[in-house]
Computed example of a mutant assay.
Amino acid sequence: MKKFVGIGALIAAAAAVPYLIHKKRQKKLQAEDFSQNDSLPLPEKNPWETDFKDEDHLIFCDESNLGKRLIQLENSINIRDIGGYTGLDGRRTKWRKVIRSEELAHLSDKDVEYFDELGLKHVFDFRDAPKAKAMPDKLPSTADYKNIPVLKNIPFSHNEIDFTAPDGIDAFMRKIYRYQVENAAPLYAEILKVMTDPNQYPILYHCTNGKDRTGFMTALILLICGVPEETIISDYSLTNLTFDEAFEVLGTIMADEMNEAKGISKDQLKDFFGVKPEWLKIQLNYIKENYENVDAYLLDKTDLTKEDLDKIRENMLEAPSV
């Protein structure tokens, strides 16, 4: 018999992450802090325990530049800049133009001041409206806010998840990624349309944890800019930098929410707290196999024009070298 857990526990736990674990992140800026020691014996694992810190799930590249990419605030865990990646004609994406983030409900006054000083113009929130209302973002005075619930009409439910199956969460997440690439492009295009205007930067977009819905938005932007897929996957995987801390806190909270009758252990929840490159590849492969490139995909799925995409590239990429 399948065992289920309410999505409310997942959302509530996820929303608590920034407040509970922001202090632990301050000393973890360098990639070497997350490398494995080959001389140590590997722990025995249950079949559902993905190692989100291994070389297949936490992927660094020459342009990871963690010291500049990770935006270290007081009450946050997963806020990153998407600048510094090489795209078309060797031009790099500009820094402090586009920020990918978790929800902003737990920002401190000092954190909000950071975005004020940055002159943040727009905050786009991909969470469902009830969640956005229950946990409202703390916004700088400079920023306009818009809620764009990209999964509002999703035709399947979290109740499909069999938490006792080793691949239960994985199968569910694959369906979510497939749904986004097939159906949600017009919603993501609302942000892309704003990005055609050079006066509307910097912008920030986020979901709850800043990994899945936010990950697809980032992939679209970087694809438009001509950033290679391997670099895009590397950027996506950086969410796993804080996996251990997130799982320790969130897994405990979620496990406590479940009574013993449900039979759900903390370990069985693990796949909710990281990202798998295979998930993003579902979207990247869909675009390649059905449209060859992101321009054709967006021109077909949205009301964006070729001129719009050219404007985004011009606004996002550094000027060509003389």
Rank of each mutant, 00 (worst) to 15 (best):
T164Q: 08
Y177F: 06
L187N: 15
E182M: 01
A185E: 09
V181Q: 02
R213T: 05
I176G: 08
L192C: 15
T218V: 11
V194L: 10
T214L: 06
I191M: 07
D167T: 15
A171E: 14
D162N: 07
I176F: 15
E190C: 02
K193L: 15
Q200S: 11
E182Y: 00
P186G: 09
T164F: 07
D170S: 15
K175P: 03
M173E: 08
P166R: 04
N209A: 12
Q200Y: 03
V194W: 02
D212C: 04
D167I: 06
A184E: 02
F172L: 10
D167M: 07
K175S: 13
Y177N: 08
A171K: 09
N209P: 10
N183Q: 10
T164D: 12
E182L: 01
V194H: 05
N199M: 14
I191R: 03
G210A: 13
A171Q: 07
R213I: 06
F216M: 08
E182W: 00
N183W: 00
Y205Q: 03
V181F: 00
A184C: 12
I169P: 01
Y205W: 14
Y205L: 07
Q180A: 12
N183K: 07
N183I: 00
E190S: 02
M173K: 11
Y179L: 03
P202K: 09
A171W: 02
V194S: 15
M195S: 06
D167H: 11
I169N: 02
D170V: 09
R213K: 14
D197W: 00
K193A: 14
L204E: 04
F216S: 07
K211W: 04
D167Y: 09
F216A: 04
G168P: 01
K193F: 11
P186H: 12
Y179N: 03
Y177Q: 12
M195K: 03
N183Y: 08
D162L: 04
N209S: 06
I161N: 07
K211C: 05
Q200M: 15
F216H: 15
G215Q: 09
F163Q: 04
T218H: 05
L192T: 11
R213Q: 13
K193Q: 13
I176N: 14
H206P: 09
M173V: 14
R174C: 14
P186Q: 09
Y201L: 12
T214M: 03
R213Y: 05
P186A: 13
K211R: 13
E190H: 01
I203E: 14
M217E: 09
L192Q: 10
P198V: 05
L192G: 05
A189T: 02
H206A: 14
G215R: 11
R178T: 08
A185M: 09
Q180E: 08
R174I: 07
K211V: 09
I203T: 10
R174Y: 11
T218E: 13
T214H: 03
T196Q: 10
L192V: 08
Y201S: 10
T218F: 01
E182F: 00
K211M: 08
A171Y: 06
M195G: 12
F163R: 08
F172D: 10
F216Y: 12
H206L: 06
P186S: 07
N183T: 13
T208A: 12
